[in-house]
């Protein structure tokens, strides 16, 4: 199963940081506390982290995270 892609909407994100706690393998804090993935605001979620990503989407207090289309390529 190909992993899904997660998108961080930085215009909504309030840097609360709960997604960084849930996905430490994929996200780190930038200097202002905002989540940053290796590929910026959109990143592929490996299958074994899918549950954690799902939690991150559901627990973001400001709905700044969503799954987009499955990873291209």
């Amino acid at each position: 199963m190909p992993g899904r892609t997660l998108h961080i909407d930085w215009t909504r994100c309030d840097a609360r940081g709960s997604c960084i706690e849930l996905l430490p393998e994929l996200l780190r804090r930038d200097n202002w506390g905002y989540p940053l993935a290796r590929t910026g605001s959109e990143f592929a979620v490996p299958a074994h982290l899918d549950d954690a990503a799902e939690d991150a989407v559901n627990l973001c207090p400001v709905l700044a995270l969503r799954f987009t289309a499955p990873v291209r390529g």
Binding site: G17, R28, R29, N31, W32, L36, S41
Partner: peptide
């Protein structure tokens, strides 16, 4: 509310700073 830089620890241990990930345009 923790805002901006105040979200981070005031005292930063230099040995613990990870290199910034390279940011690529989508």
């Amino acid at each position: 509310q923790l805002r901006g830089a105040t979200r981070l620890d005031r005292r930063i241990d230099p040995s613990r700073i990870a290199p910034a990930p390279e940011v690529k345009e989508i």
